[in-house]
Every structure is written in C-alpha cells, then in structure tokens.
Design a protein around this nucleic acid. Structure first.
Lengths: 173, 173
DNA sequence: TCACTTTTTCAGAAGTTATTGAAAGTGTAG
DNA sequence: CTACACTTTCAATAACTTCTGAAAAAGTGA
C-alpha cells in the first residue's frame, strides 16, 4: 500500500510530465499539481520549498497559471503575503485549458488562412493544390473553433452529464 | 494579389509555427505542409532542397510523419528512390493526430492514476485532497478517452457532416 | 517621510531538444 | 562478389527554452 507522501510526489511528478504534452511547461504543471492536492492555499515560499525551485520561477509560473484562469490568488486579512489555490473542478480546468489553446492555436491559424485566400488563383496543379489546402484548413479551423466555443459555454457539469451520453448514442459508421 | 511562391512559403511557415503548439515539431510540420501543397510525391532530396535542411533531418521527420499515419511512401517502378506524399484529407489528418495524441497523453495518464488509487486512504485533509484529485482525474481521463476513441472510429466525412450539427443543437446550460 | 516586506524583472547559467553531416548499413543489378 | 544508389544512424554541436538569484520596483504601516 502506497504511503501519502510517496503518492503526492508521484502525482506531482506525473502531472509535470503530462503537462508538457498538454502545452504547459513542466514546472507550471508541477505547481498546478501541488496546489490541486493542497487543501489550503500556499504562499510563494511554501511552493519554493515544496518543489525546490527559485522564487523567480514560482512567480513567473504562478502568474501564467492565473492567466490561464486555473489558479487564483487569495489574500488573508492582516497578512501581506499572497496565497494561491487551484481550481479544484477538473472539468472546468480542462475547459479553461481548451479555451486558452483555442485562442493561441486556432485563432492565429484562421488569420493566416484568411490572408492566404488572397493568393492569385492559377490553373496549374501547384496553384490548385495550395488553394485546396488553404480552403480545407480554413473550413476545418472554423468548424473546430465553433465546436470548442460551444463547449466552452457549457459548464463542466454539462460535460460530465451530457456530452458522453450524446456521443455514445451516435452509431459509429 | 499574392503570388504563388509567396503563398507557398507563407503556408509552410505558418504550418510550421502552428505545428509546434500541436505537439509536432517545426520541421516535421514544415515537411508536412510542403507535401500537403505538392501535387506530386517528393523525394528526400527534393524536400532537402525545398526547405534547406539536412538529409538526416528529412529522413527522421518523414519517418515520424509516417508513424503518425499522415504521410505515405510511394515507390516508382524502375526508380530506387522513395517518394513521399501527404494524406490530403485534412479531417482524416486531424483524426490521426488526435489518435496519436490520445495514445501518447491520455493512456499514460490513466496508467499513473490507476497506480495512485493504491495510496492508503487517510482521513486527513491532505489524504482526502489527493484521493479526490486522483479520482476526478481518472474519471475525466476515461471519459475523454471514450470520446476520442468514439470519434476515431468515425470517418472524416462524419465529422464534417454530423458532429457540428449535433453539437449545435444542444442547448448550452 | 523611512524602514521594512513582498513581488517582479531580467541577464546569464543550466538544461533540453533539434539539426547536421559523415559513417555505417541495406538492397540491387551486373 | 563488387560497385553503386540510396537510407539510416548517431555523436557532436547548434538553437532554443527554462531557471536562478540578485537587484529593482512596488506596496504598507508608522
């Protein structure tokens, strides 16, 4: 049977590794993991000590986590330090990460494809191949954007209760 | 009005930049872009020349693109060179990227959460916070896996025609 | 205002990932 | 078997990203 401290370390380690593939850097993900399993909000110093990282690093990554909307600041009366805690609803967290990634990845893609639609239309195979690729990607990006925007508007609760059952009922081709 | 060559360069450049945020490295994405807008299959040398990169780099990245299933090898009778072409259906390409990412990101996450369920259950706030996080993430990961697996089984055509309209009909909460 | 506490910034160091190019490997035709 | 045409590998290195720690800035109360 695994002990608590071992489990906590393993959890932080795992979330850090996984985070990288989700477009979140290792330390940012580790801080997120630490706050996720902490019942109370933690100060910069506590995070530094728990993860053995520098003040600058904690500050920078906590700021980013707040930009993503998945970590929040807490102020305690009579205390000048800032304390941080993570959003504990994992579905809401996933939605917010999705939202941020949509903004950072899909929106620039749509902008560029819009520019590329201005390429002179030629009858050559080269010209047609480019036109087709631009058209297809633009179409896809808009659809993906619509899907993600719609999902964003729905609560985490909705995801839990409805989305899965809807998907399950659709017959695979 | 933008000229063809300028458009092609811009397209390759854009796809390369975007690729990085989709978990595909810059060069791999640029090779993919080049093949996507090429009406004919290209040899290693042609890719090297078009993108100004080394033989080893082309070889390595083309291999990865084939592992992802979005680039294919073509052999021409009487020619010992290998020629490469990209899957031109952008929805199918997106599905294959999704599939690969599910395997690389979600499956290891599920494995680790399964291990972490073995942590001794304690009544302390620390113990309960860890147990809850592990439970929630495990539940989420299984759901996400089911959704993605279901989508994988559907054709690109299905995505185009059905998914969007289904999503659109669901009333946001 | 000053003295003190906490946060932010940023140049350089450390660490990570991608790329090259030459050498080794593979397959084929004569 | 040998020569050739191509592909693959991999150690060295280049390019890029993250992290540190000390200094500057910002905030607070007396």
């Amino acid at each position: 049977m695994m002990q608590l401290q071992e489990g906590r370390d393993k959890f932080i380690q795992a979330w850090g590794t996984l985070g990288s593939s989700w477009g979140i850097n290792r330390t940012m993900a580790q801080i997120h993991a630490l706050l996720l399993i902490s019942p109370i909000a933690l100060s910069t110093e506590e995070i530094m000590d728990a993860l053995g990282i520098s003040r600058g690093n904690v500050n920078m990554n906590v700021r980013s986590l707040m930009d993503w909307g998945i970590v929040h600041k807490e102020l305690r009366p009579g205390d000048r330090k800032e304390y941080f805690h993570a959003e504990k609803d994992i579905y809401l967290t996933a939605m917010k990460i999705m939202r941020e990634r949509r903004k950072r990845e899909l929106e620039p893609l749509i902008t560029i494809m819009t520019q590329l639609k201005q390429v002179e239309k030629l009858e050559t195979p080269e010209g047609q191949a480019l036109t087709k690729a631009v058209h297809d990607i633009d179409h896809f990006a808009h659809q993906a954007d619509t899907v993600l925007t719609t999902m964003e508007k729905m609560t985490s609760n909705w995801f839990t209760q409805q989305f899965l059952s809807v998907i399950k009922k659709i017959k695979p081709l």
